[in-house]
Simulated scan of single mutants.
Amino acid sequence: MTEIFGAVAADYDAARPGYPVALAEAILAYHGGPPARLVEVGAGTGLATGLLAGLGTRLTCVEPDARMAAVLAARFPEAEVVVARFEEWTAPPAGVPMLACALAWHWLDPATRNRGAHDALVPGGTLAVFAHRYDYVDPAQATAIRAAFESVDPVPHHDPPEDWFHADIAGSGLFADVRSVPFRRAVPLTTAAYQRLVGTFSPQLRRPPELRERVLAAIGAAVDGFGGTVTLDLRTTLVLARRPD
């Protein structure tokens, strides 16, 4: 499943929303300034990489899908790109001062991800994990779009709690000073832009091609019913933690 997005790498890069600048500022404030080195896990096509590169640090990106990594390397030639699963990657013997993971923590092995992150960090090093949660500003749009999904594919897709990775990291007992920082933005999208975004979601990529087309047609009709624009309530959670000294 970590490599399903490579087939839509270009759409993923174009359609997925990025991250607010304030998120990088929160990371810097928590860490106490720019780290000497940062490793980004599950970097994808680099949607978070630009933000992290702005921290002014030597950057290594670990990405398991070669197709996603190719887009990433083209966008950020100054970054070291390693094509590997996090579980296969070997950290420098001395460790790194910061490890970041955007929208990929749930793809890492739950039995080993916290230990792997802990062991990759130097004592006092920072772990920064962040992800989006998609909702809708207008409750009427939310109802109509969810009904459109269910009219074509009634199989339920349950999202975990919004702060699940805070609980996961804190519950590991391996980190200190675990805290969450929330961000919220309204993001308007045209019908075509919303369909392109949905086309990059894992539930959609798991569907057979014919069902994918029916889903896109149904949600397209729903958004068109609201004048051709849907406004997302995009909630981003940043979880910060520190490897104890």
Score class of each variant (00 low, 15 high):
residue 3 E to W: 14
residue 5 F to R: 05
residue 5 F to S: 05
residue 7 A to D: 13
residue 7 A to G: 12
residue 8 V to N: 08
residue 8 V to Q: 00
residue 9 A to G: 04
residue 10 A to R: 11
residue 11 D to F: 09
residue 13 D to H: 10
residue 15 A to T: 02
residue 16 R to P: 06
residue 26 A to C: 10
residue 27 I to H: 07
residue 30 Y to G: 11
residue 36 A to E: 14
residue 37 R to M: 14
residue 47 L to M: 11
residue 50 G to V: 06
residue 53 A to I: 02
residue 53 A to M: 06
residue 59 L to M: 04
residue 61 C to T: 08
residue 65 D to S: 10
residue 70 A to P: 03
residue 81 V to A: 10
residue 99 L to R: 07
residue 102 A to I: 01
residue 109 D to G: 10
residue 112 T to F: 04
residue 112 T to E: 08
residue 112 T to Y: 03
residue 114 N to H: 12
residue 116 G to T: 04
residue 123 P to H: 00
residue 126 T to Q: 00
residue 129 V to Q: 02
residue 133 R to S: 11
residue 135 D to Y: 04
residue 136 Y to A: 05
residue 140 A to M: 14
residue 140 A to H: 11
residue 144 A to I: 08
residue 145 I to N: 11
residue 159 D to K: 12
residue 159 D to I: 11
residue 163 D to Q: 12
residue 166 H to Y: 13
residue 175 F to E: 00
residue 180 S to R: 14
residue 181 V to I: 11
residue 181 V to K: 10
residue 183 F to C: 03
residue 185 R to G: 14
residue 193 A to C: 04
residue 196 R to S: 13
residue 197 L to H: 02
residue 199 G to E: 07
residue 212 R to C: 08
residue 214 R to F: 00
residue 216 L to T: 09
residue 217 A to N: 01
residue 223 V to T: 06
residue 225 G to S: 09
residue 228 G to R: 01
residue 229 T to I: 00
residue 244 P to G: 07
